[in-house]
């Protein structure tokens, strides 16, 4: 119980740092803190498989990619200019209120599919059995749909960043010239496997 409260408080602190920090890297680190605290919450509810996956996927991979982008784009200087989008604060406020309302509705109308004690007992032992069974029977369609969505996102990203192969001077891309030894095809990382 004490651990639960402590971790909850830590998660909130991290979230506040994420929003309030002026340096994008510090904000991302705050988010890492929040994600780790949430993983700790999972672990204290004896869902250690979820906790491990939370750390591996979110804190270990996705946030590293966030930081990667921040550093590559040199976006870690404090933002001083004005927001180019009008009404952004008001819109964000409205969105936040709607989200909070939705979460509150869910929190108060949620009914356990099975009693809590039973669920905890199923998760104990650390095997992914309980999670896997639910994911691949009851939620099979959403699960597969999400993986297709991720695949689409990857293909889209590759299509966006892919530049035409460089041509020798004086030759336009439209004409093209066979290069001595074709360039290796760029491959899309199979990100969908992990997430």
């Amino acid at each position: 119980m004490i651990a639960f409260l402590l971790l909850g408080a830590l998660a909130l602190v991290g979230a506040v740092v994420t929003v309030a920090a002026r340096n994008a890297v510090h904000a991302a680190l705050g988010l890492v803190g929040t994600l780790l605290s949430v993983a700790g919450l999972f672990a204290s509810l004896s869902a250690s498989f979820l906790a491990a996956v939370q750390v591996i996927v979110y804190a270990g991979a996705i946030l590293v990619l966030f930081l990667f982008v921040i550093m590559l784009l040199n976006a870690h200087q404090p933002v001083t200019g004005r927001d180019p989008v009008p009404f952004v604060r008001e819109l964000a406020g409205i969105g936040g209120v709607i989200l909070a309302g939705a979460l509150a509705v869910i929190a108060f109308s949620y009914r356990d599919p099975q009693p809590l004690a039973q669920g905890t007992a199923a998760l104990r032992g650390g095997t992914a059995g309980a999670v896997g069974e639910t994911l691949l029977t009851r939620f099979l369609l959403p699960f597969e749909a999400v993986s297709v969505l991720l695949l689409v996102a990857i293909v889209g990203a590759v299509a966006l960043v892919r530049r035409p192969a460089p041509q020798p001077d004086g030759v336009t891309d439209a004409e093209g010239v066979a290069l001595p030894g074709e360039l290796p095809e760029r491959t899309a990382p199979e990100g969908g496997v992990r997430a």
Binding site: S48, F49, V55, G60
Partner: peptide
């Protein structure tokens, strides 16, 4: 931890 090797991979990935 129950998750064993997974938990260890998680920690090393940090």
């Amino acid at each position: 931890l129950d998750a064993g090797i997974l938990a260890l991979l998680a920690i090393t990935s940090m």
